[in-house]
Each structure stands twice: as structure tokens, then as C-alpha cells.
Simulated assay, not measured.
Amino acid sequence: MADDEYPTVEIGGEKIPYDPEQLRKINEHPCYSEKACHSAGRMHLAVAPKCNIQCNYCVRDFDCVNESRPGVCSEVLSPEEAIELVKKALSKFPYIKVIGIAGPGDPLANEETFETLRLLKEEFPTPIKCLSTNGLLLPESIDRLLEYDVGNVTVTMNAVDPAIGEKIYSFVEWEGKKLHGREAAEKLLSQQLKGIEMAVSKKMLVKVNTVFIPGVNDHHIIDIAKKAGEMGVFTFNLIPVIPQYKFKDIVPPTPKEKREMQDSCSPFVRQMRHCQRCRSDAIGKLGHDVQDCLYNKKD
């Protein structure tokens, strides 16, 4: 299937047609439609500072204006501050079609996420609601996300083999305990797979992000893509690792290596090839962010 064709989704061998609302959540979302990324914008609300896992490539920064990568923002907002920012953004930039929560921690590990979504549903019911997560708490959160009209969910899944996953995660916090090693990787993976399955079955549009880590999961990425496609994931986004934290000495893949990996994965799941690795407070069109004029309160 071509990347811009999506009349149906195949789940368990059965082709199921998308309904008009699902198609809107594809056609107006700049991450789900490469055409939309030229005309439609998104805004990320940085209301979720806490995270429940530690990835070996992740350094979160809550007072950062100089880096453009996931996990950083200029400031963490309260739900009420986030709503005021939405009002200001939509008045100045009416092309914004998507309101998302992507951190700087994991949205589902922060109750502020759900309060923000509740307020958004009350005051801004039309924009598409989107959320990014590591997936650990996704199964338990599906009903609340549906209640608040979240139709697009991104899950970062870096392995479908715990033997590889344990090399990527330092720990996973689960039911008040810190899990390490294989136990941590197994718990995270089981929750991710269960959550993705539930989300797809509820007609949510799912994107899987996979961090391309040479020497760690590069030989395994096609297996992740195959699994994503089998589960009915809408699109697959391959993100080159940024060398930092425990993976600071890893050499990231070249653009050519990334393209070749995407080509190898494309028979199994649609590829997102226009990702800009957005900050958790990004606002505007992909690659044309405008958040500075809002956070700096310029008119």
C-alpha cells in the first residue's frame, strides 16, 4: 500500500474500513499524513514531567531553549496554564489542528495529563487529541483516553525481544517497585503489546516510534516493524538515537542507513519519513515551530 493510501486497516487478516472521523484524524494530523504536515500544525502541552521508566538514551530537561529533541521543554505547565496557552495559540495560528501531550516525561504517569485532557474536551472539542507514551500504563489508561477523545496514540517500542529490551532500559517502575534487567523489559513489552492491541481494537490510530540504536537493536528493527504491522499499527517512525546518557558513545545511524532500514521495514507497516523529533513543547508546523513567540509572551 502506498504511504498516502489508507482506505482500510488490516487486523488479524481482516480488512476494516476507516470511518470519516478516523480519516479526519489521519488527514489533519501532520505526523500521520505527510501532506498534512505542509498545511496543518500541532501543539504539544508540556504538562507531564514525571516518567516511570529510564531509557539509556534519554536525558530530560525542563528548562531548555537550545535543544530540539524529545524530552526537553522551556517550562512545565499546569493544566490551567496549558489551556491558556491553547487559547493564545489557536487565536494566532488557526492552522493548528492537533493538540498533543508528549512529556517531557511519560504522560500516562502524570495525573496532570488527564486533567488537561478533561479541560481540553470542555473548551476545545474540535482539535484532534494526541498522546505519546512508553506504553507501560497504556492498558489501564485506554478507557480514560477514550473518555477524553484521544484518537491518536504514539507508543515508543524499541524491542519486541526482552533480551534486547534489557539493554535499552535502566529500570521500569511498576506497582511501587523498580524492576531491572530482563524483568523490566518483559513487563514493559507485555504492557506495550497489550496496550497497542486494545487501542487498535478501540479504533484509535496508533503510531509506533522506534529508536534506531546501532549495535543494540539495529538487527532487530525489522522484527519490530513486522509486529507493528501485524497488530494494525497505522504508521512506524524510525528515530536515530541521539548519543547521550549511557549511550553517549554510540555513533548514530547515517541518513542513508536510516532510509535503507525504512525501506526494509516498509513491506510490513507504513513508514513515517518526515519526522522532526519534536520537543515536548513544540508548536507550529513540522520544522517551522513558533512556540518562542508564545512562551516569551510576545504579541
Rank of each mutant, 00 (worst) to 15 (best):
M1H: 00
A2K: 08
D3M: 04
E5Y: 12
Y6G: 04
E10R: 11
K15P: 01
D19C: 03
D19Q: 12
P20Y: 09
E21N: 10
E21C: 07
Q22Y: 01
N27M: 10
P30D: 03
Y32A: 15
Y32I: 09
S33G: 14
E34N: 13
E34M: 13
E34W: 03
K35M: 12
R42L: 14
R42Q: 14
H44T: 02
L45V: 05
V47W: 07
A48W: 07
P49I: 04
P49Q: 02
C55I: 02
C55G: 14
C64N: 15
V65R: 15
N66W: 01
P70L: 02
C73R: 05
S74L: 05
E75N: 12
V76S: 04
V76Y: 08
L77C: 01
E81W: 09
S91K: 15
Y95E: 13
Y95P: 07
K97L: 04
V98N: 01
G100R: 01
I101P: 04
A102G: 07
G103C: 00
G105F: 03
P107S: 09
N110K: 01
E111H: 03
F114D: 05
E115T: 11
T116D: 06
L117P: 08
R118K: 15
R118H: 10
L119D: 08
L120M: 10
T126E: 11
S132W: 05
S132R: 05
S132V: 09
S132D: 13
T133K: 08
T133S: 11
G135W: 08
L138H: 10
I142N: 10
D143N: 14
R144I: 07
L145H: 10
Y148T: 10
Y148H: 13
V150Y: 14
G151N: 11
N152T: 12
V153C: 05
T154C: 06
N158T: 10
A159N: 14
D161V: 00
S170N: 11
V172H: 09
E173M: 10
W174T: 03
K178A: 00
R182D: 11
A185I: 01
L188K: 12
Q191K: 15
Q192R: 11
E197C: 04
M198E: 14
M198Q: 15
A199I: 11
M204K: 04
V206S: 07
K207M: 00
K207D: 00
K207F: 00
T210Y: 05
P214R: 13
P214H: 08
G215T: 02
V216L: 08
N217P: 02
D218K: 12
A225F: 02
K226N: 08
K227D: 02
E230A: 11
M231V: 03
M231S: 03
T235N: 08
I239M: 14
D249I: 09
D249L: 12
I250Y: 05
V251K: 15
E257C: 10
E257H: 06
K258A: 06
K258C: 02
E260C: 04
E260T: 09
S264F: 05
F268S: 02
M272A: 09
R273P: 09
C275H: 12
C278K: 05
D281G: 11
I283H: 03
K285A: 03
Y295G: 09
D299T: 13
